[in-house]
């Protein structure tokens, strides 16, 4: 337990709409060891952001956690009152968002916005807090921190804003950082810098990171262990090397195939047929079966995660066959 920062077990979260319950997160279990970077990958709408927001308990109405447990350093987050949870946010877990353009308050100086985060959780003077902010700005690679401190968000580039967001998230040295598509809105060179920065902070600040992305390249770059999500469920989990070398779930294989590599002479881009299913009308059994090329009779039954190798779990009946054969 001591070496586990976050332990999510059987987490389920749903949206309650007029048309019924949408199970956006369905029985998800995630383990985040200390000082590790965990990746959650999947298409839009697969529930990866919902999982992140559930951990932060920041689900938007009408979303609600319906079951499971979330333990941060052994503390059960689902049992906390709203006020207690507010104290955990920013202090022990923090989060950065996809859009650095809109994630900062447009009418407030960025320095003040970061300063707020530390003043909220530490009993220090404003002057000390400002010093701390400037030190953090330097740490996340913001040049001329004194000058940037007094800037408004619209005066800064996307990359700088995301650095500000990271400074804000890390200023209280949280145990866990959840990064929801942190580089999706940035261009590729800035993306690489931001990923490097996050890797560096993991070591210097001793923070575990949950990185959410739809970009397999980003995942391969920084993650130690990866969860693949589909239709609210985890369909495969393995360490990064194994997942990329030996994907077992047809969905994971499809994702891997749809990435172009430079050596690839084939001019046609591989795609996965069909679209993400409507969560209100999930197919019987395996949610991926309507799009799966290897579908068979057994796929009509609900699938459970099968351990095909140590620490490599796959939610597919066929993966067992492969193992036996």
């Amino acid at each position: 337990m001591k070496n586990t920062t976050l332990l999510v077990e059987h987490l389920s979260a749903s949206f309650f709409t007029g048309r019924g319950e949408i199970k956006a997160v369905n029985d998800v279990s995630i383990t985040v060891p200390r000082r590790s970077i965990i990746g959650i990958v999947g298409e839009s709408g697969c529930g990866k952001s919902m999982t992140a927001r559930s951990i932060m308990r920041l689900l938007k109405y009408p979303g609600k956690i319906v079951g499971g447990s979330i333990r941060l350093m052994g503390k059960e987050l689902t049992a906390l009152t709203d006020a207690e949870m507010a104290n955990v946010r920013g202090e022990e877990i923090s989060m950065i968002f996809q859009e650095p353009m809109t994630s900062l308050n447009p009418v407030m100086k960025v320095g003040k916005q970061v300063q707020e985060a530390i003043l909220l959780h530490r009993k220090i003077t404003k002057k000390e807090a400002k010093e701390e902010v400037l030190r953090m700005f330097r740490e996340v690679g913001i040049s001329e921190p004194e000058k940037r401190y007094n800037c408004y968000p619209h005066e800064l580039s996307g990359g700088l804003r995301q650095r500000i967001m990271i400074a804000m998230a890390m200023i209280c040295r949280p145990k866990l950082l959840i990064a929801d598509e942190p580089t999706t809105a940035l261009d590729v060179t800035v993306e690489a810098q931001i990923l490097e920065l996050m890797k560096g902070l993991r070591d210097t600040v001793d923070t575990s990171i949950v990185l959410i992305s739809h970009n397999l390249g980003v995942i391969a770059e920084v993650c130690d262990y990866v969860y693949v999500m589909y239709a609210g469920q985890i369909v495969e989990q393995a360490d990064t090397f194994t997942l990329f070398e030996d994907p077992r779930h047809p969905y994971t294989k499809g994702l891997m195939a749809s990435v172009k590599s430079l050596e690839d002479k084939n001019t046609v881009l591989e795609t996965i047929h069909g679209t993400v299913p409507n969560l209100l009308e999930l197919p019987e059994g395996c949610a991926f079966s309507p799009r799966c090329g290897e579908v068979c009779e057994n796929c009509r039954q609900a699938q459970s995660l099968i351990e095909v190798a140590p620490n490599h779990l796959v939610r597919c009946y066929a993966s067992k066959e492969v193992q036996h054969g």
């Binding site: 920041l58 507010a86 955990v88």
Partner: peptide, 8 residues
């Protein structure tokens, strides 16, 4: 969301 994630 950012403000709430900060702990407000």
């Amino acid at each position: 969301d950012t403000a709430r994630a900060k702990g407000y």
